[in-house]
């Protein structure tokens, strides 16, 4: 399977921080995978996602999309963000518009699509996330679960090939989690790669086909769940098994 997105020996330290967040992280992601990215707090999971979307630029190493290194120019970043969607942990940090419809339309509008195409994308994303009835609602009047779905729809409306989800499902009730994982499954069926950062080892074990383990800014394992959870060293790293 050819790599869709690759991290090659990526190093990064946040400005003012003495401790690097990434210390040579390397990972290869293929099309249509369900990936659970896990590791302890501060392992570098969110930082890796920010590199995938071109928000952060490696101090050393390379991020490649379809084999080509990311270009940090306006055009290059547009190309990356068109294909790599990023959903943030807290939807309140992502939703900027008072209108659900307008918030979802923001990404497709930035892709330079026609108004008719943007409307179609918004309707499709809202339908996929089951929030068509919320399009006229103000974002501040939504429940936290609904906000998560709107934030997800805002990224899906850009029709990414890779969806990166930063712990969005934590703190949601079981039905809402079920709904979101059903959306992920449909996306994977359509050939989209879904990468979810999570501390929930049950999700990593049962939902993912690949579990990526990070520790101290490095990827220490990338393998099927059976293999990862059979390894006592990795088990010790991740914590008590559920």
């Amino acid at each position: 399977m050819s790599a869709l997105l690759e991290f090659d020996d990526v190093h990064y330290a946040f400005p003012g921080s003495a401790i690097p967040a990434l210390r040579g992280a390397s990972l290869s992601i293929a099309t249509g995978q369900r990936i659970a990215l896990t590791g302890r707090n501060g392992a570098g999971k969110s930082t890796l996602l920010l590199h995938a979307n071109g928000i952060l630029r490696p101090a050393k190493g390379q991020v490649r999309l379809d084999g080509a290194p990311l270009e940090y120019t306006r055009r290059g970043l547009l190309r990356v963000r068109r294909q790599v969607g990023l959903v943030f942990q807290n939807p309140d940090d992502q939703l900027f518009s008072a209108s659900v419809l307008q918030d979802i339309s923001f990404g497709p509008m930035n892709l330079g699509l026609s108004i008719a195409d943007v409307r179609r994308r918004v309707a499709e994303a809202a339908d996929l996330c089951g929030i068509s009835n919320l399009l006229d609602r103000p974002t501040h009047a939504l429940s936290s679960g609904q906000k998560s779905l709107v934030a997800l729809a805002g990224v899906l409306a850009m029709a990414p090939r890779i969806l990166l989800v930063d712990e969005t499902t934590s703190g949601l009730d079981p039905w809402m989690r079920y709904q979101i994982f059903a959306i992920f499954d449909r996306l994977v069926e359509q050939g989209v790669t879904v990468l979810l950062t999570t501390h929930d080892l049950t999700v990593a074990r049962q939902w993912a086909d690949t579990v990526v383990v990070m520790h101290e800014g490095r990827v220490v394992a990338s393998a099927p769940p059976v293999q990862v959870f059979a390894d006592p060293d990795l088990q010790a790293l991740l914590g008590p098994a559920p």
Partner: peptide, 17 residues
């Protein structure tokens, strides 16, 4: 950061209502 991840380039373009 979230705006940039969705292609923000200085203007908050959204659908007209």
């Amino acid at each position: 950061t979230a705006l940039e991840s969705r292609g923000f380039d200085g203007s908050l373009r959204v659908l007209p209502l």
